[in-house]
Amino acid sequence: HAATELTPEQAAALKPYDRIVITGRFNAIGDAVSAVSRRADEEGAASFYVVDTSEFGNSGNWRVVADVYKA
Protein backbone atom coordinates (compact mmCIF):
# COMPACT_ATOMS: atom_id res chain seq x y z
CA HIS A 1 0.00 0.00 0.00
CA ALA A 2 1.24 3.46 -0.80
CA ALA A 3 1.94 6.08 1.83
CA THR A 4 -0.79 8.72 1.87
CA GLU A 5 -0.36 12.47 1.71
CA LEU A 6 -1.54 14.36 4.80
CA THR A 7 -3.34 17.69 4.95
CA PRO A 8 -1.57 20.53 6.81
CA GLU A 9 -3.96 20.00 9.73
CA GLN A 10 -3.22 16.28 9.94
CA ALA A 11 0.54 16.87 9.72
CA ALA A 12 0.41 19.49 12.48
CA ALA A 13 -1.20 16.97 14.84
CA LEU A 14 1.46 14.30 14.31
CA LYS A 15 5.18 14.04 14.99
CA PRO A 16 7.28 13.01 11.99
CA TYR A 17 9.91 10.32 12.52
CA ASP A 18 12.05 11.37 9.58
CA ARG A 19 12.49 13.94 6.83
CA ILE A 20 13.28 12.89 3.30
CA VAL A 21 14.61 14.93 0.41
CA ILE A 22 14.27 13.86 -3.18
CA THR A 23 15.53 15.58 -6.28
CA GLY A 24 14.51 14.97 -9.84
CA ARG A 25 12.92 16.26 -12.96
CA PHE A 26 9.15 16.40 -12.47
CA ASN A 27 6.66 17.63 -15.07
CA ALA A 28 4.09 18.53 -12.43
CA ILE A 29 3.77 18.69 -8.66
CA GLY A 30 1.69 15.53 -8.81
CA ASP A 31 4.69 13.67 -10.24
CA ALA A 32 6.85 14.90 -7.37
CA VAL A 33 4.21 13.87 -4.82
CA SER A 34 4.06 10.40 -6.39
CA ALA A 35 7.85 10.09 -6.10
CA VAL A 36 7.71 11.14 -2.44
CA SER A 37 4.93 8.63 -1.81
CA ARG A 38 7.03 5.83 -3.30
CA ARG A 39 10.10 6.79 -1.22
CA ALA A 40 8.02 7.09 1.96
CA ASP A 41 6.51 3.68 1.23
CA GLU A 42 10.00 2.16 0.79
CA GLU A 43 10.93 3.52 4.22
CA GLY A 44 7.86 1.96 5.82
CA ALA A 45 6.02 5.23 6.37
CA ALA A 46 2.24 5.27 6.59
CA SER A 47 1.95 8.88 5.46
CA PHE A 48 3.89 11.96 4.45
CA TYR A 49 3.57 15.71 4.18
CA VAL A 50 5.43 17.80 1.59
CA VAL A 51 7.14 20.59 3.51
CA ASP A 52 8.89 22.39 0.67
CA THR A 53 9.44 22.29 -3.06
CA SER A 54 12.00 24.35 -4.89
CA GLU A 55 13.42 24.42 -8.38
CA PHE A 56 17.15 24.04 -8.95
CA GLY A 57 18.14 26.94 -11.21
CA ASN A 58 16.49 26.75 -14.61
CA SER A 59 17.32 23.11 -15.24
CA GLY A 60 13.84 21.78 -14.52
CA ASN A 61 15.15 19.76 -11.58
CA TRP A 62 13.19 20.00 -8.37
CA ARG A 63 14.11 19.45 -4.73
CA VAL A 64 11.21 18.16 -2.65
CA VAL A 65 11.35 17.96 1.14
CA ALA A 66 8.79 15.87 3.01
CA ASP A 67 8.21 14.75 6.58
CA VAL A 68 7.28 11.09 6.96
CA TYR A 69 5.07 9.53 9.63
CA LYS A 70 4.67 5.99 10.90
CA ALA A 71 0.96 5.60 11.61
Rank of each mutant, 00 (worst) to 15 (best):
A66R: 00
G44F: 04
Y69T: 00
I22M: 05
F48C: 03
G60K: 08
N58T: 14
I20V: 06
I29Q: 08
T53C: 15
R39T: 05
V65D: 02
A3R: 02
P8K: 15
G57L: 06
V64I: 14
D18I: 10
Y49G: 02
A71T: 13
N58D: 13
G30P: 07
I29L: 13
A28I: 07
A46V: 12
V36C: 08
S34Y: 13
A46F: 10
A66V: 13
T7E: 04
G24M: 05
A35D: 04
E42H: 08
F56I: 15
V51Q: 03
I22C: 06
H1M: 08
E55L: 10
Y17T: 03
V51C: 04
A45W: 15
W62S: 02
V50E: 02
L14H: 09
V36D: 01
G57R: 06
A12H: 08
R38Y: 11
V68Y: 06
V64L: 08
K70S: 08
H1V: 10
N27W: 09
A71Y: 12
A35S: 05
G24D: 04
F26Q: 01
D31N: 05
S37D: 03
V50Y: 02
A11P: 02
Q10W: 06
V21F: 07
V50N: 00
E42Y: 08
A35M: 08
R19C: 08
S47I: 04
I22G: 00
G60F: 04
S34F: 10
T7A: 07
S54M: 14
P16L: 01
V36P: 05
E9S: 10
W62M: 09
A46D: 14
S59M: 10
E42T: 06
T4L: 13
V65E: 06
A32P: 01
V36K: 01
R39Q: 08
A12W: 07
S34I: 14
S54I: 14
G24K: 01
N27G: 11
A12K: 12
Y49M: 05
G57M: 06
I20Q: 00
R38G: 07
H1I: 08
R25L: 10
E5K: 07
F48T: 00
A28L: 07
R38A: 12
E5H: 09
Y69G: 00
I29V: 12
A45H: 05
W62Q: 03
A35K: 03
V68C: 05
Q10D: 06
S37Y: 05
A28G: 15
F26T: 00
R39P: 02
E9L: 10
T23H: 10
R38N: 08
G30F: 09
A12R: 11
V51P: 03
D52F: 13
E42G: 05
A46R: 08
P8H: 13
